[in-house]
């Protein structure tokens, strides 16, 4: 059943998205770990279709919000309106009330809208004018952004980035994959061919099983050491936060579950550490200026090779 879930999901996603198995797998890990994902890449690299196909195969409700600079928080959250028939005020739910929300081009929205998304992502609830409404369960945000855009955008601040369990960079496909994509797209291609692989009951059971995956004290110690090393690293001005380490532990549980284990091993942590920590650490500008480093991922990789896991 466990191995099947991964294979079934990937085979469904593969029907509409070619060459994005790794990204789909990471989305599944994040979903099972109840985290949110930031997909980063230039336009046209299948970010949106991947999110749509993923939502469809899991059988969860999906909504998409296209973020724009003139957007207001209530466009996303909903608001209090006056019902003429009832002669009373009522809360009208916005598009954030869904299981899987695709926040397209999140860095185009002004900071007020971005921060309104914070509560939803962290607390799984929405508060408007003192009225608090819980979001559906499960709730996952898949946000996309184009790292090449500098005009008319509002870069996500560190605290917002920290809310994303993973950042997945989506580069250009290789030559063979690209040819296959073109061929596929010349025909009729839509997410309607994607079939649901999991029922609601199975989904609840799966979440419960992931939450029961054991994380030993030694593994927790290893995660803490990775965090400490990132804070002591001279090439970084900002290391991993405790929240980042908690999310790393959650993620490694999901990885272990998908591998058919009920316990986490050091490989599970190494497999996702780059995606969980990469966007949370900040390079030290003096180290960048002297050419010591130019990519946070490089530092995270070094930390992983330096810190001894329990063996």
């Amino acid at each position: 059943m466990v191995g099947e879930l991964k294979e079934k999901t990937l085979s469904q996603v593969r029907k509409v998205v070619i060459g994005r198995e790794r990204e789909a797998e990471l989305l599944l890990v994040s979903f099972l770990a109840r985290g949110h994902v930031l997909l980063e890449g230039v336009p046209g690299v299948s970010k949106t279709i991947l999110a749509k196909a993923f939502a469809k195969c899991l059988g969860v409700e999906f909504k998409r919000i296209q973020f724009t600079p003139d957007m207001l928080p209530m466009d996303m959250l909903g608001g209090i309106i006056f019902d003429m028939k009832q002669r009373d005020f009522e809360f009208r739910k916005g598009p954030v009330f869904t299981n899987l929300l695709l926040a397209d081009e999140i860095n185009r929205a002004p900071p007020k809208v971005q921060s309104a998304l914070l509560e939803s992502m962290q607390e799984a609830q929405v508060t408007v004018e003192g009225h608090t409404e819980p979001l559906p369960d499960p709730f996952m945000v898949i946000a996309t952004q184009n790292p090449q855009e500098f005009q008319g955008v509002y870069p996500l601040p560190e605290n917002q980035l920290d809310r994303f369990m993973m950042r997945i960079e989506m580069g250009y496909p290789n030559l063979t994959t690209e040819s296959a994509i073109i061929k596929r797209n010349l025909g009729d291609m839509g997410t309607q061919v994607v079939e649901q692989v999991l029922g609601a009951d199975e989904l609840t059971k799966t979440f419960r099983e992931v939450a029961n995956v054991a994380v030993s004290d030694e593994i927790m110690g290893y995660i803490s050491l990775l965090g400490l090393e990132s804070r002591n690293e001279s090439r970084l001005s900002l290391g991993a936060s405790p929240r980042a380490l908690i999310q790393l532990a959650h993620c490694s549980r999901a990885v272990a579950f998908l591998a058919g284990r009920d316990y986490v091993i050091p490989e599970d942590i190494k497999e996702v550490a780059l995606y969980v920590l990469g966007h949370r650490v900040k390079l030290d500008q003096s180290a960048v200026l002297v050419g010591k480093v130019n990519d946070p991922a490089e530092v995270v990789r070094d930390i992983l090779t330096k810190v001894k896991p329990p063996r």
């Binding site: 091993i265 490989e267 190494k270 992983l304 090779t305 810190v307 001894k308 063996r311």
Partner: peptide, 8 residues
Amino acid sequence: PQGYTWTE
């Protein structure tokens, strides 16, 4: 490297 795992 020091950080190797058994699988590696």
